[in-house]
Design a protein around this nucleic acid. Structure first.
Lengths: 230, 230
DNA sequence: CGACACTTTGATCCGATTCAACCATCGTGG
DNA sequence: CCACGATGGTTGAATCGGATCAAAGTGTCG
């Protein structure tokens, strides 16, 4: 028997509007889970047995096509749900989730979802709101992929990532987890070569700084302006 | 006072699981609406005052970027809801909806949504299921835009459209509404020129047939095979 | 310290856009 | 009812954004 403190999840968006005792009931059904960097939380097309709440760390959600090409659908930060296949009426996970750094999550067995959704309408409502938000994001991404050139797409990804996970450093705002050129390419539908060229060009122009797997945005406004030829 | 027969909406996916009297209550709040081909049902970024059910016809949902580029997000067929901005917690429409042919819809004032969702949980559940399905579609589209070449994307769009709206004809299965090369380009992130070239090439190869604003898929399997170089 | 993962950079190639011109079909009004 | 403008479609040539091919450099970790 674990004793998970409800302060772990109190105040997180998925549980907003729930009372303290509610949280205790919810926590009772959860099981803590450590995921080492590079390890999968769940794998695409396998039976969905659980859904997860990321407590600490960063996880990337990756879709792989039949011919082996990868697309990173999103990065999940602490406080967010992942693997909610059941809530969407699926029986398998639509993507693979890989820890970008050593991470900590809670796992609930699948059956718990329906029970919790019934018991706590606020929890269900929060989840659906999140699904709606993710749908809109996906739509925006479709528009961008269909209309914008690569430099613009890469710039927008960097700005989105520093907004979601950035932390202040001496030179600017750094993306909050290690990310390679290949990762950025997989988020924008391009190649690591093109990303590398863009980043070095932008570094010369003073918009960004980067080292191995770390990217810092020095001047986001000027970067946006640079690619924002409207 | 109108008298809308409940048989109009009985059996449609958004209302599955609802009783006859429920349907009557729901219909009471609706107002019928004719939309001429080319007319907008609602416009992007304007105040969302209503949501709609398409009873007859075809409507395309279009997003326009700041610099005027268009992306067709989807085609709506009879029996589907559109403009459910409110259900997603928005106050404005995220896209413009244009009738592709003369169409008929029902319109509910925005306030009705929360009321109906509260009164009829099945209705709310159906709507969320649809939102989930659309999110998955959007994700698939992101993957395709990020990884597949233009010919593959165009082929997939044609096959999807005949699956959703196709009707048998002498030569094959025809897309159920008028659609131009430009429209197809706006769905796949390419240009009308490229679509035109692809369609004429495919016509020579016997995969499709087309005339002005009408496209018929003669042999979908061979078309798929043609672009499906995996 | 050596192997491996990540990054950079040059050269070449190609899919698709852009530019340009012309043709076909439809709807409309004199 | 036919002429004509408008909308939609085709096709060639030039161009270009990025991918691909190729090779070498660099940081990191076991």
């Amino acid at each position: 028997m674990y004793t998970l403190d409800r302060s772990l999840i109190a105040g997180l968006p998925p549980f907003s509007g729930l009372s303290r005792p509610d949280l205790d009931v919810i926590l009772e059904k959860a099981r803590p889970l450590r995921i080492a960097a590079g390890q999968a939380v769940f794998e695409q097309d396998t039976e969905a047995h659980s859904f997860f709440l990321l407590l600490d760390g960063h996880v990337r959600v990756v879709k792989t096509t039949a011919d082996g090409q990868q697309v990173i659908m999103r990065y999940i930060s602490a406080g967010q749900l992942i693997g909610i296949a059941t809530a969407l009426g699926r029986t398998t996970y639509p993507a693979t989730a890989i820890a970008a750094v050593d991470s900590l999550a809670l796992a609930w067995p699948n059956e718990a979802w329906h029970e919790l959704a019934r018991l706590y309408p606020a929890f269900a409502a929060n989840t659906y709101k999140m699904v709606s938000a993710r749908m809109e994001e996906a739509h925006e991404r479709v528009v961008e992929l269909a209309t914008a050139l690569v430099d613009r797409r890469v710039a927008h990804v960097l700005l989105r990532l520093i907004e979601q996970t950035g932390r202040r450093t001496e030179y600017g705002i750094e993306i909050g987890f290690p990310i390679s050129r290949q990762d950025i390419a997989d988020m924008t539908g391009t190649t690591l070569h093109t990303v590398s060229r863009l980043l070095t060009a932008w570094e010369h122009q003073g918009f960004v700084r980067s080292t191995r797997k770390r990217v810092t945005v020095v001047d986001g406004a000027r970067l946006l302006d640079h690619v924002g030829r409207v």
